[in-house]
């Protein structure tokens, strides 16, 4: 299991002090895809970089299958895609880049060549195996970054925005690989701003806001919980809304209000505030992960304000 245990990190420079993470804890079990979501600057990349050992936390620890960073074989448990744009040795071809990556991880040359061939085939890059790395398109480089991350077939993989900038076909190929890896028992921690990608892939959702984890739940549990708190209110005629202390949107016609409550009992409060506007219907509705994300990050921001 990959375990992030109460890590905190503050970056200090001459000009400013940035509290990046506060007591962040997370777990990724084998076969699980955990989506780490958050707005820009919420601490996602710092969390990923800390797990990789690129950042040393001020407090807390990270362990993988009981091994802590610095212990032999910690890194053998881990593969990471940190930057999809910059990952290749520019003077080597994709095939050579992968053979080198495998060789550095201890594979013998014939084994490394086999693995490189397998990965290039898998990601549809075999045709480009001998092209200079500088001539690859952005999408191809992203796929190569993914291939480099999983070259040594690690049990845990960290993916920082893996589908960023990919066209729909390339994104589908990558998503299929990620799902396949999880099926094969690998634990995956991924960050993304594409919430529909997270919704399709993940089994668990952790949301970071202001450097803190504000929610960490199984995706189904989270969606179910929000289904109980999400309502669609339809009015007989366009209305002006009173001040509502819940996340809500009123459509352009001014007749349909969608609202997410913090807990189901707030429905009474909602009704009280909407009175005496003419109601046509009120119904529960299914929510999407994007709305849950907005709800949590907005809530955190309003609390900190």
């Amino acid at each position: 299991m990959l375990k992030v245990d109460s890590i905190s990190k503050t970056f200090r420079s001459l000009r400013n002090v940035v509290r990046a993470l506060t007591g962040v804890s997370l777990e990724v079990k084998p076969g699980e895809i955990v989506a780490l979501l958050g707005r820009n600057g919420s601490g996602k990349t710092t969390t990923i970089r800390t797990v990789c050992g690129l950042v040393i936390p001020d407090e807390g620890s990270v362990s993988i299958n009981g091994l802590r960073f610095g212990q032999p074989n910690y890194m053998a448990q881990l593969g990471a895609l940190i930057d999809t744009n910059r990952v290749l040795f520019p003077r080597l071809s994709p095939f050579e880049n992968l053979v080198y990556t495998c060789a550095v991880r201890g594979m013998r040359r014939p084994e490394a060549r086999e693995r490189a061939k397998y990965l290039l085939d898998l990601l549809g890059l075999w045709e480009k195996r001998n092209a200079p790395a500088q001539t690859l398109s952005k999408g191809m480089v992203s796929k190569m970054a993914f291939a480099v991350a999983i070259a040594h077939d690690p049990p845990f993989v960290l993916l920082d925005e893996p589908t960023l900038g990919l066209d729909i076909d390339a994104a589908e190929v990558l998503e299929a690989q990620i799902l396949g890896m999880a099926k094969a028992g690998k634990g995956i921690l991924l960050t993304t701003h594409q919430l529909e990608v997270a919704e399709r892939l993940c089994t668990r959702v952790a949301i970071l806001s202001g450097g803190r984890i504000v929610v960490d739940k199984a995706k189904e549990e989270l969606l179910e919980m929000f289904d109980l708190q999400s309502y669609r209110v339809t009015f007989k005629e366009p209305v002006n809304l009173p001040e509502l202390p819940f996340q809500h949107t009123l459509d352009e016609s001014g007749r349909v209000l969608e609202v997410i409550l913090d807990h189901p009992e707030q429905l009474y409060e909602l009704m009280r505030r909407l009175h005496p506007r003419p109601l046509r219907s009120i119904e529960k509705r299914e929510v999407e992960l994007a709305e849950i994300f907005r709800s949590y990050t907005a809530r955190k921001e309003s609390h900190s304000a």
């Binding site: 990471a80 990952v87 290749l88």
Partner: peptide, 9 residues
């Protein structure tokens, strides 16, 4: 070239 991270990894 972004390969320094891979060296650490």
């Amino acid at each position: 070239s972004g390969t320094l991270e891979n060296m650490v990894l």
